[in-house]
């Protein structure tokens, strides 16, 4: 069957686990904050487009920079900032036909392998994103003023990728660590 990935909630039992759970809570709080910014980006995108239509029709003076701003900042912003959160809350479609027919230990192994592979991808994304951001930073790439794009250094949007990848990497590490340390009860949807 196809379902969405179920969220995990941990129940701390030891002192180390308590410390661990503080880390997990902190990670979740940062994820929620990033998610709130992502929500802001979505709302801003909607309103910006409506304003653009209004400006064009009523005063024949389009905004101009909205196209580049949506493309460079709002779309990547809402995706990368929300990515870790959506992984935690299980918004991503998985295929469960085989999984559901497997005994518990095999399921656990599958989950760990899946998380490790995702962690590998996330770490690569983080590394590549840092390289790109560093390039843009060190060569001081900036759209010249007076063009259609806002004249803001381009590292400010390149950095959205490594920020999102960093959040995702922390999330996956937390998931893996939590799995090792603590017994898990079967999960309920995490609120946000």
């Amino acid at each position: 069957m196809t379902t969405t990935d179920a969220p995990r909630r941990t129940r701390p039992e030891t002192a180390t686990a308590r410390a661990g759970s503080r880390v997990l809570r902190a990670a979740s709080a940062v994820e929620r904050a990033a998610f709130a910014v992502a929500a802001g980006a979505l709302v801003t995108m909607t309103l910006l487009m409506v304003v653009e239509i209004a400006m064009r029709y009523f005063i024949a003076s389009p905004i101009g920079w909205n196209f580049g701003f949506i493309q460079d900042y709002l779309l990547p912003g809402y995706f990368f900032l929300a990515l870790a959160y959506t992984v935690r809350t299980g918004a991503h479609v998985t295929i469960d036909v085989v999984y559901q027919r497997c005994p518990a230990p095999v399921r656990a192994a599958m989950t760990v392998i899946a998380r490790v592979l995702m962690l590998g991808l996330s770490a690569l994304l983080l590394w590549a994103g840092l390289l790109t951001t560093h390039d843009a930073w060190s060569s001081r790439d900036i759209p010249p003023p007076g063009g259609a794009e806002l004249s803001i250094p381009t590292w400010t949007w390149h950095v959205l990728v490594p920020v999102g990848a960093a959040l995702l990497t922390v999330r996956l590490v937390c998931d893996l660590a939590a799995r090792r340390d603590v017994r898990r009860d079967d999960e309920k949807g995490d609120d946000a």
Partner: peptide
């Protein structure tokens, strides 16, 4: 920039 310079509005 040229479009704008001529007093028109560039639309992306």
């Amino acid at each position: 920039r040229a479009v704008e310079g001529f007093g028109a509005a560039p639309v992306g």
